[in-house]
């Protein structure tokens, strides 16, 4: 298998199926017919190029600690500054611009609901802008990975 095929298989086939055994990368290698070293080195390359963020877990929101989705309407000329202030919080993970009057969207996670509220309050206080708190009330679709299209 050439490197490109190996990378495609790693990206597509293991989004939710990391083998839970002492040598998971060896188990992946055996399924793909390559060596453990080749799997480790390809995953390292994918991480270095940014194609993957990590080999790790997605945690169900609010299962350990609390989280929310927050939105702000930021004057466009202030967006970079406010976004940097938001990103600087360790409790913020995703932070995106979106095309809407509410143009800054971010996820806050903390050990408990008070911790989430404190982060939102701090951001609101430091920016003088309202922060909408949009916690998940019910989930209908679990993030089970995503079939990639190569063409």
């Amino acid at each position: 298998m050439d490197i490109q095929d190996l990378e495609k298989r790693l990206l597509n086939d293991f989004q939710r199926d990391l083998p839970l055994e002492p040598r998971p990368f060896l188990a992946m290698a055996e399924r793909l017919g390559v060596t453990e070293d080749e799997v480790l080195s390809a995953l390292g390359d994918l991480r270095d190029t940014g194609a993957i963020s990590r080999v790790g877990a997605v945690i169900r929101p609010n299962s350990v600690g609390a989280s929310t989705l927050a939105a702000m309407a930021v004057p466009p000329q202030d967006l970079e500054r406010v976004a940097a202030l938001v990103s600087a919080h360790a409790a913020v993970n995703h932070n995106y611009e979106r095309e809407h009057r509410l143009n800054l969207w971010f996820v806050v996670t903390a050990p408990d609901a008070d911790g989430v509220a404190a982060v939102l309050d701090d951001i609101s206080e430091r920016t003088g802008l309202a922060v909408l708190d949009l916690p998940m009330l019910e989930g209908y679709h679990l993030d089970l990975g995503f079939a990639l299209q190569w063409t």
Partner: peptide, 23 residues
């Protein structure tokens, strides 16, 4: 309905649940 396309990504990583004093 409204469709909000994403623009710039300012931050993207896994969540952290540990308390600050534990990190």
């Amino acid at each position: 309905r409204a469709v909000l396309f994403s623009g710039r990504r300012f931050k993207q990583r896994g969540a952290r649940y540990s308390r600050p004093e534990e990190t």
